[in-house]
């Protein structure tokens, strides 16, 4: 499935971050591992709490997608969703090719495209003034299924269907920045999360 980027969102038509993530929280199942990062890691714990949630904070910026790919490769019996910011993706655009080269059919990348480095005070990313088509980049990198949403109703209607298509999948969401949303915050320390996810995955593999 592909969506042409012929109608990029006007700033006032971007989705609200919480509303966009609520759609994803409703679509995920007990089979899904969800890796959040940066701004999404701050919002997700307010709307969902699942033993297979992993809030990658503190992270190495740009690491969420390769981290999720590692999980997906280790556990092909699971579906892995990673929620990445556009600034993080820009730090390591090559990881899109790493993902497609790996043929990880159980990985979904959900890109929060807000055009800014939200957690450091909403400075513009280089892409904010460059008319970057992330869905187009993913398509060119070889993702078999790519979607681009800027309307919440459309994302709500079709998002779950896209998540069920053959992976790896790339979903770009045009989202309004959260002004004043400084700093990624995780609900519990990273080491606790590592232990919780490792144990949960080990239990489910028995």
């Amino acid at each position: 499935m592909t969506e042409p980027n012929e109608n990029p969102a006007e700033p006032d038509r971007r989705m609200n971050l919480t509303a966009a993530l609520e759609v994803l929280a409703r679509a995920r199942t007990d089979r899904h591992v969800v890796v959040t990062n940066q701004g999404s890691a701050r919002v997700w714990p307010q709307i969902a709490d699942h033993p297979l949630d992993f809030h990658y904070v503190p992270s190495a910026m740009g690491g969420a997608i390769p981290f999720a790919l590692g999980l997906a490769l280790a556990r092909p019996d699971r579906e892995v969703i990673t929620v990445s910011g556009d600034g993080s993706l820009l730090m390591s655009l090559g990881c899109l090719v790493t993902v497609t080269a790996s043929h990880a059919a159980n990985l979904s990348i959900v890109l929060i495209d807000n055009g800014v480095y939200e957690v450091t005070g909403c400075q513009k990313t280089p892409a904010a003034t460059a008319d970057v088509d992330y869905a187009g980049l993913a398509r060119s990198a070889g993702f078999p299924n790519v979607a681009h949403f800027w309307d919440e109703g459309d994302w709500q209607r079709r998002g779950p269907k896209v998540l069920a298509l053959r992976g790896p999948r790339f979903i770009s969401l045009e989202v309004e920045p959260v002004r004043g949303g400084y700093g990624p915050i995780a609900p519990c320390p990273l080491l606790e999360q590592v232990t919780r996810l490792r144990e949960r995955l080990a239990q489910s593999s028995k």
């Binding site: 190495a60 390769p66 981290f67 790919l69 590692g70 999980l71 280790a74 556990r75 390591s92």
Partner: peptide, 26 residues
């Protein structure tokens, strides 16, 4: 062995972390 190719070295550590937490030995 499974060989996983990355595009830049920084990816390798995070990818290995995911593999490790998923129960593999990268």
């Amino acid at each position: 062995l499974t060989l996983v190719r990355v595009c830049r070295e920084g990816e390798a550590w995070a990818l290995a972390a995911g593999l490790h937490i998923g129960g593999k030995k990268p």
